[in-house]
Amino acid sequence: MMALDLSRVAAVVRKELRDYRRKRSIVVGMLILPAIFLIEPVLFVFLGAPDPVGDPSYRAPLLLLLLIPVITPSTLAAYSVAGEREQGTLEPLLTTPIRQLEFIIGKAAAVMIPSVGLSYLVFGIYLVVVRLFANPVVAAGIFNEGPMLLALFLFTPLLTGWSIVVGMAVSVRAGEIRVAQQLGMIASLPPLGVVVLMVTGVIAPTFTAALVFAAVLLAVDVLALRGISGLFDRERLVTGSKASRP
C-alpha cells in the first residue's frame, strides 16, 4: 500500500477551493440549483395539506433535497480534470511528486467539502423552516419520517461521493468541460432510484432499509473509486492513450 502524503492532498484541496471561489459561474451554479430545489419543499411546508401521518407526499420534498448532493458535485467534478486540461495546468501538475491517489483524493475532497456542506445547509434550512413555520400537523408528519430523514443524512455524502467519482471519470475522458458536466450529471442520477423507491413506498422506508442502502452505496462508492484510479495514469492523462510498458 503506497503511502499517502496528506500535505499534498491538502495543497490540492486548498488550491481547488480558491479556484472555485474565484470562478463566478461555479459559485452561482452551486448556489442556484440548491435554491431552486429548496423552493418546492418550503412551499410544501406552507401549502401542504395537514393529512394523516404516513402520507407518502411528505417524503417527496426529501427526494428533491437529495438531488442537491447528486447534481451539485457533478458539475464541479466534471471540471476537475477537463478544467486542468483546458487551461494547460494538467501537465505541470503531473510533473510534481504528487501520487495518483493523492491527486484523486485531493480533487474529490475539494468537491466533497462544499457539496456536502451546502447539501446539509439546505437540509438544515428546510428543517428549521418546518419547525418554525409549518402547520404543526405538517411538521409532525415530516419529523415522523424518521427513516427518510436518516436516509437523507446518510445518503447525502454517499450520493455526493458517487456523483464525484462518475464526474471525475467523465472528466478524464471528455474533451470539453461543458460536455463533461452534462454527461457527469446524467451519469450521476441512477442511484437516486433507491430514494425514489423509498419515497414511493415500493421499498418500505424503515431505519434498516436506510442503513442497508447506505452500506450498499458506500460499497459502490469505494469500488467505483478503485475502478477509476486506472484512468488517472499519468500517460493516459497526458497523451490520452494507455501506457505501454516495456
Binding site: S7, R8, A11, V12, K15, P92, T96
Partner: peptide, 8 residues
C-alpha cells in the same frame, strides 16, 4: 504556494 505544497 500550491506547487511548494506538492513538493513539500
Amino acid at each position: 504556494e500550491f506547487f511548494a505544497g506538492l513538493y513539500g
